[in-house]
Design a protein around this nucleic acid. Structure first.
Lengths: 338, 338
DNA sequence: CTGAAAGCGCTTACAG
DNA sequence: CTGAAAGCGCTTACAG
C-alpha cells in the first residue's frame, strides 16, 4: 500500500502539496496537480482516511441508533440518512438496540471514543448523561459533548433537535376522516401507555371526537403494544363493550392489521361492519386485505433532513434547538371506503 | 477532551503503560492499573479510537453493502451482522446501493481508503477489480486487497467465501410439498432471468417435477422481477394457458403474494382452486391472507456467520474460499393446506 | 503556489 | 512490569 509520501516523491513535491491536491485542489497549480494525480494513479494510491481523520480530529462517520433495523419503519428512515450522508461524504454506522436498552449507553460511548462525530437517535430515549447538570445553569446545548439529532419520536425534556411529523394533527385527521364518513362510535387502539407517540395520537383522537361533540364510549380506548397480536386482543375487548364501535383508529399499522384479522375471523366485514384506520403507512398496508387507510409518514425524507441537521451542527452552523415538522398525509384505502 | 498523556501524568506513569492498561491489562501491575483507571475516571477520559486505529493500521469497522436497507429481507441479515459485530468489537458501516449499481465501486473505494477493514456483500455482484488478473496465475485470494464475504447470493466466478442456503434443495422441497398434496400442474413464477437465485430455484423446481416423472406444461414457467406486481401478471399469464395450474411455486414471497392477490381478484380461492408457495419467509408471509407456505431462510444467523467469517479472514486465521450452507426450512401455512 | 516542520493521540518493539 | 522513542499517514499554520 503506497503512502502519500510515495506519491509526493514520485511527483517531486512535498506531502503538503499532495495533501492539498486532495483537499483543496484549487490551491495547487494545474501542472503540479496533474503530476500528482498521475503519480497517484501509477502507484495505485488511495488516501488513508484514518490518518486524515486523526489529523482533523474527526471520524467522518455518524452513528444511527435504531430500535430494530429489521423493522422497515426504521430502515426507511435509515435509508434516507444513508443517502444524504453519502452526498455529504459521511459514513453511516448502525447501532441496533435489540432487546437490551442498555445498548444505548454503549453506543453513546462509541461516539465519545470518536468512532463517530455525532449521533442520530430513532429510539425515543436519549443516553443517560455522564455529566450531571449543574443546578441553576440552563441545560447545556451538547450535554453529551457531541451533536445529537432525534428522529420520529420526540424525547421529552431532552432539548435535542428533532425531526418528525405533527402526530396530534395527523391522528386528528385520521379520526375526522372516519367521522365524516358518518361514524360516531369510533374506538381507539392506543400504543404503550408511556410512549410519546401514543400520547400525541391519543390527544389527536380525542380532539377530533370533541371537535364534533363526541366523547369516546366506555371501553372504547384500549392500549396495545404496537404488535399485531395486541390489535387482535383490542378487537376482542371492543366486542365485549356495550356500544360496539363501527370504526377503529389504531395508533400504528400493525395493530390495525391485527384488528382487521380478528374482525374477519369473527365474521365481520371491513369496512362494511367496522372501518379501520392505521398509522405509519408501512409497506404492507398497501397490499393487505383490505388495503389499509392510514397516515403516511415521509420516512425517507425524515432521514435526509435529520442527517442534514446533524451535519449543520457538526459544522457549527446552527445553535439552539430546533424542531422540524414534516408533512404527514392521510392515505385513504379500502379499509374505510368499501 | 483529555488525552492519554493527561491520564499518564495524573497517574504518574508513561503513556505506554496507560495504553497497555487498556489493551492488555494483564501486562500491568494491579496497583498501577488501579491508579490509571482512577485517573481516567477523574479526567472523564475516553480512549481515542481514531488514534488507536491509525497506530494499528486498521479501522475497526466493516462495511455492509445492501441492495436496499428498506427491504426487511436484507435488514434482518444486517441485524445478524450487527449483533455479531458488537460481540467482536467491530462497528458496522452500511452502504445502500439504491438505484445506482455503480455505488458498489464507490463503497469498494471506501474500504480501500481504510474506512473499513473488510466488506460484506448482500447484493450478488462483486465490485469490479481495479487490478487486472495476471493470466497464467491463479486468481488472487484477495483481489481487492482486503477480505470480502458474500451473503445469500453466491457470486459466480468470484471465488469469494459465501454464506447462504441450498436454494436448489429448498426449491425442490417446496415443489415436492405441492406434489405430495396431489398437484400435477405446478407452475413456477421465476425471478429475473440473469439472477443466480432464479436459476438455482428453477433448477430445484424442475428437479422436483422430474423426480416424479412430471414436466412443466407449456407456459407454466414465467419470469417476474421479484415484485408483487410481477406476481399478479404471472397469474394472468397462467390463466391464459391451456392447462391451468392447480398450484404455483413462486421464487420469492412478494411474487407469491401478488399471485394470491390476483387469484382472489379473479374469484379463485387459495388454496382451494390454486395452492401457492413462496420463498424467503418475509415477515408478512405469516400475516397475509391466507398465510403463505414458504421457505424460511435463517437470515439473522446468516448475518452472524458472515460476520464471523469476515473477522476470521481479518485475523488471518483462514485461507482459501469457503462456502457455508445453512439449513432452510419449509414452513407450511394455509396457502397450501386449506 | 509550495515546503519544512510540528502535531493529531495512540501503539509497540526494544531495552532495562 | 515499565519507559523512552519512533512511528502510524495524514493536515495545517507559518513562512517564503
Amino acid at each position: 500500500m503506497s503512502r502519500m509520501r510515495d506519491v509526493a516523491e514520485r511527483a517531486g513535491v512535498s506531502t503538503a502539496t499532495v495533501s492539498r491536491a486532495y483537499s483543496s485542489p484549487e490551491r495547487v497549480s494545474p501542472e503540479v496537480r496533474e503530476r500528482i494525480m498521475r503519480a497517484a494513479l501509477d502507484l495505485n494510491y488511495t488516501l488513508n482516511l484514518v490518518a486524515r481523520n486523526l489529523s482533523r480530529n474527526e471520524s467522518g462517520a455518524v452513528l444511527v441508533v435504531v430500535p430494530d433495523i429489521g423493522n422497515p419503519f426504521f430502515s426507511k428512515i435509515l435509508k434516507g440518512i444513508e443517502s444524504r450522508a453519502r452526498d455529504l461524504s459521511y459514513s453511516v454506522l448502525i447501532g441496533d438496540i435489540g432487546s437490551d436498552p442498555g445498548q444505548i449507553e454503549t453506543f453513546a460511548r462509541d461516539v465519545a471514543a470518536r468512532r463517530a462525530d455525532g449521533l442520530i437517535l430513532l429510539n425515543g430515549r436519549a443516553p443517560a448523561l455522564n455529566m450531571a447538570e449543574v443546578p441553576g445553569e440552563p441545560p447545556r446545548e451538547r450535554p453529551l459533548g457531541y451533536p445529537v439529532v432525534v428522529v420520529s419520536e420526540r424525547i421529552p425534556d431532552a432539548r435535542l433537535p428533532t425531526v418528525g411529523i405533527d402526530n396530534v394533527a395527523a391522528a386528528k385527521a385520521a379520526v375526522l376522516h372516519l367521522i365524516e364518513a358518518g361514524h360516531r362510535r369510533v374506538a381507539h387502539i392506543a400504543g404503550p401507555v408511556a410512549n410519546v407517540l401514543t400520547k400525541e395520537r391519543l390527544v389527536g383522537y380525542l380532539a377530533a371526537m370533541r371537535s364534533v361533540g363526541l366523547e369516546p364510549d366506555a371501553g372504547a380506548i384500549v392500549h396495545g403494544d404496537f404488535s399485531i397480536a395486541s390489535g387482535r386482543q383490542a378487537v376482542r375487548a371492543f366486542m365485549g363493550i356495550e356500544k360496539r364501535p363501527s370504526a377503529i383508529f389504531a395508533s400504528n399499522d400493525e395493530m390495525a392489521m391485527g384488528a382487521i384479522g380478528e374482525l374477519k375471523r369473527l365474521g365481520l366485514s371491513v369496512p362494511g361492519d367496522v372501518a379501520v384506520v392505521g398509522f405509519d403507512d408501512i409497506e404492507f398496508s398497501e397490499i393487505c386485505d383490505p388495503p389499509l387507510t392510514t397516515i403516511h409518514q415521509p420516512r425517507f425524507e425524515m432521514g435526509q433532513v435529520a442527517m442534514s441537521l446533524l451535519v449543520r451542527r457538526l459544522r457549527g452552523d446552527i445553535q439552539g434547538d430546533e424542531e422540524i415538522v414534516l408533512p404527514a398525509e392521510l392515505i385513504v384505502r379500502a379499509s374505510t371506503t368499501g
